[in-house]
Write a protein that binds this DNA or RNA. Sequence first.
DNA 1: GTCAAAGCGTGACGATACGTCACATTTTGC
DNA 2: GCAAAATGTGACGTATCGTCACGCTTTGAC
Lengths: 236, 236
Amino acid sequence: MNTLTRRQREFLQREQLFLDAARQILRSDGVAAFTIDRIAGNTEYAKGTVYKHFTCKEDILCALCHESLVHLGEAFSKALTFPGNSRERMMALGTAYLQFTTRFPEEFDILIAVRTNNVRQKASEKRVEAMIAADQGAHDVMRSVIGAAIAAGDLTLPTTTSLDEACFGLWAMAFGLLALAPANDVIDSLELPSIPIIMVNQMNLLLDGYGWRPLSTEFDYQQTFARLLKHMETLQ
Amino acid sequence: MNTLTRRQREFLQREQLFLDAARQILRSDGVAAFTIDRIAGNTEYAKGTVYKHFTCKEDILCALCHESLVHLGEAFSKALTFPGNSRERMMALGTAYLQFTTRFPEEFDILIAVRTNNVRQKASEKRVEAMIAADQGAHDVMRSVIGAAIAAGDLTLPTTTSLDEACFGLWAMAFGLLALAPANDVIDSLELPSIPIIMVNQMNLLLDGYGWRPLSTEFDYQQTFARLLKHMETLQ
DNA sequence: GTCAAAGCGTGACGATACGTCACATTTTGC
DNA sequence: GCAAAATGTGACGTATCGTCACGCTTTGAC
């Protein structure tokens, strides 16, 4: 039993069609080719119809971002099927994030772009809120992992640090690494290992800073990472 | 004795004039108002003249970004006039970065935008290279601080971690925090302290992870931070 | 089954901004 | 003092955004 009329369902389906087309264009031809006319053309609808769904270009960007965040949240949930101790499960989230950004760099570009004020101001309030909610969803998964670690006695946060703050800090570290990494490929003068290795190393250091047991000196997280990559493959 | 002719000097001066105008527009009216016509209008030159200096809009963005990075590098150098142990000096850099982004959020928006591929591809090679060089300059300051810490025996990097990687990791953490912070102001459901406090806490955790002596358990870095803010004010 | 009202799709149109170029003006060097 | 080179100009062509009045389709009342 569907409470929506056929027309309403068609409307939602078309919205999805537009978003799929937009994502397709973005993935194959990059941000430069991302125009409303192109979306309309590829879907064989008129430009005006696209604007029946979205207030402006940035609105579409936010909608895509929303979808991406939902996907990321799902990837997080899937990653948690990995069996292991609390810290290994946190690493599973990091690995999922890493895979997401390497697989869909254009989409990560949007996630970065949406951070700037310009986009957020232009997009409709509705979309921005949905986006924030999806962001929250992914955060919640991470929070649950941290919470479980505390409950299990693997982690004791400093009295000055809230769970939210720990979550935010970890997120920011991962985001920073993944956002800066591509640009630093260009800088030849830096002697850097590959992004995945940096990711594992830096996560290890930060989690050691938190005193999240077992510490990297007590446990082989490199091996965990290798197993994680395999585990992810079986999922995808 | 100047080796340049008057004309050449005038040319360089005008380029600076354009950049100053561009930055002014950006600061006062945001990215949306940032147009070539506006820059030309404000400087009382024709649009064509602007294009004698820059290949495209993104080229100007890169030039601005270059300047910003130079300023940031200078702010770093100034921050190092703060007397203290090696880890306090690293905190001085973090504080300088924090102040830079809070004082000029629009410019930090550019620094974020320039991370996306789109901008880098459109801008001229010359500008992108200059930008990377400036980036490198700021990195070098940070590297020197880490190097000094190692030399002083305050820090011993794991054998698997190069100095460059440590530098990159710290940079990424700071960048991530500062890039995500404004957006998270919106998320009311998160219980987060103010950005400066998060910054200090997270830096403490990461540096503790590195085992950078004295550890945050052995030393009052909150007090260092307060002194740093005062010290920065006197510099300005 | 019919028809009017409401809803929906359209693409031409106005506006804005980018980037170019042929021409006008100034400077340089002889 | 003049020709050639360098420099400044702004109108123009192109692209894209976002709008809107018009025509077509669906709906539901009779």
